[in-house]
Amino acid sequence: MVSEKSKKLLFNVFRFNRENDYLPHYDKFEVEVGAGDVVLDVLNKIKNDHDGSFSYRRSCRHGICGSCSVKVNKKATLACKVRVSDLVEIFGEELTIEPQDKSRAIKDMVIDKENFWSKYNSVQPYLVADIDETPTIENIVSPEVAEEIDEADYCIQCGNCFYACPAVEVNEDYLGPAALALTYRFNADVRDGATKERLNIVNDIGPGIWDCVKCFECAQACPKELNPIEKITKLHLMTFEEGMARDNVAVRHAVGFKWSIMKHGLLDEGELVKYSEGLIGVTKHIPEAIAMFKKGKIVMPWNMPKSKNLDEIKTLVKSASTAKFKGK
């Protein structure tokens, strides 16, 4: 595009063919990168100028089909949207291009996205509504109500968030940010009638919202800036609004902060663990508690520090509270 500003860069590229290779290897390709070139331009140049067998998914080249995601220096990258110059600004000129999940590689950048799709499909990702076949008026959704869905509708199923999520990496049951953001998208839709069914699906410890590690990788990875973790937080709030929060360790852990703040202003860490785990569950923490006690890391209840002006905090906890939990 701007040829005088183009530059030759050496890319380190992941290569693998599941049909023939036992292990992957990396090839180096020198590519002339124009000032405005995006990563997809580089992939195209590798294929067209260097190795016709190089494989990657691509289609729209306009950031809407979600096919061309890869990782560059481990950063989730929708290839048609991210400029090479922006990556050079972060990482310098040594760039390594890899598939979204190397362990699922089929050929070069092409991966088996079955784990993404099966989770995506498991949350009833469609509008559940009784359709009036002879309507007399239009089904009107006001802009204010539509706003509730927010940008959750922008998902292009690229998988950037899913393959950037550390919880997905180590917990194969976890639904992951895309499926959970999608759950929010339909639950927030005023026309939908399956909110409770979906909340039931995402409410289990293991696959659901309580296993989000709160790392914000998904918010960074999403090329459509739909902020999946914010939608996961909204699902947490929704379980309380709908009276569906279960009396389990994760839920009590969230609720317990309120009681502690009400009492001390600060969090009583020991009390929170007791409240969250219950009297039997808390015993599994005894070895760590002893080790911490020996090091002066446990504050006894009678020494628990309190915030100054605690009365203000107590007043605010009463007046600003909006949520309820019917557990113990």
Partner: peptide, 22 residues
């Protein structure tokens, strides 16, 4: 010394307005 707990990203899952106010 007047400050309270921030909610540690957990109170935020239970009560958004309370956590914002605190």
């Amino acid at each position: 010394d007047e400050a309270s707990c921030c909610g540690a990203a957990h109170l935020q899952d239970f009560d958004d307005m309370l956590s914002l106010t605190l």
